[in-house]
């Protein structure tokens, strides 16, 4: 089955890196994966996105078109990039940033991702890793073991513990909300 994930936010939030880590986690799970992102003027400031398609089969068409899971860290990203979300898809939004939601039959998870990164972990920059935790927890896209290893393989030396905590915080947020 083809599973499409779109991670969106604004330039500087590490959205692209999150997409790459998610894709690498899927590879660790032995699955096929394609990752794409926005380039050029569109990627300089303002809303940006990374897309990951995960499948057990060969992935022909590499662009996301019917999104299974969409994550939006800003209102602008939500407005701009939520159009292709499947009717029964999942939408994760940052609860402090995204207040106006589009209509649709999706399942909503409004989670304090940025706040958790800032307050609980003391580093706003790890919001993307918290976000990854929520994605891994709320979907069957990747296994927990794979996402942990993929995060460790990508983050700068010396920040491993912080990022693992951020990932765990994401899992916790997701767990609390789905209970």
């Amino acid at each position: 089955m083809r599973y499409e994930v779109r991670i969106s936010g604004e330039g500087g939030q590490g959205v692209i890196l999150a997409g790459i880590i998610l894709a690498e986690a899927a590879i660790r799970d032995g699955r096929n994966v394609v990752q794409t992102q926005v380039y050029g003027p569109e990627s300089r400031g303002g809303a940006t996105k990374a897309e990951v398609i995960i499948s057990d089969e060969e992935i022909d068409y590499p662009k996301a078109g019917r999104i299974d899971l969409l994550l939006a860290l800003t209102q602008e990203a939500c407005d701009k990039y939520s159009g292709d979300l499947k009717d029964r898809g999942a939408m994760i939004v940052d609860s402090s940033q995204v207040t106006a939601l589009p209509p649709g039959g999706f399942t909503l998870f409004a989670l304090p991702i940025i706040e958790t990164a800032k307050e609980k972990l003391g580093k706003g920059v790890v919001a993307n890793i918290v976000a990854l935790g929520t994605i891994a927890a709320l979907s069957s896209a990747v296994s927990r073991e794979a996402i942990e290893k993929a995060v460790l393989a990508r983050v700068p030396t010396g920040t491993e513990e912080l990022n693992l905590m951020a990932l765990a915080a994401g899992f916790e947020l997701a767990g609390a909300s789905s209970q």
Binding site: A23, V34, Q35, T36, Y39, I59, P62
Partner: peptide, 10 residues
Amino acid sequence: DEVIGHMREK
């Protein structure tokens, strides 16, 4: 093309 140039794939 641009898509193949920029996309990441397993």
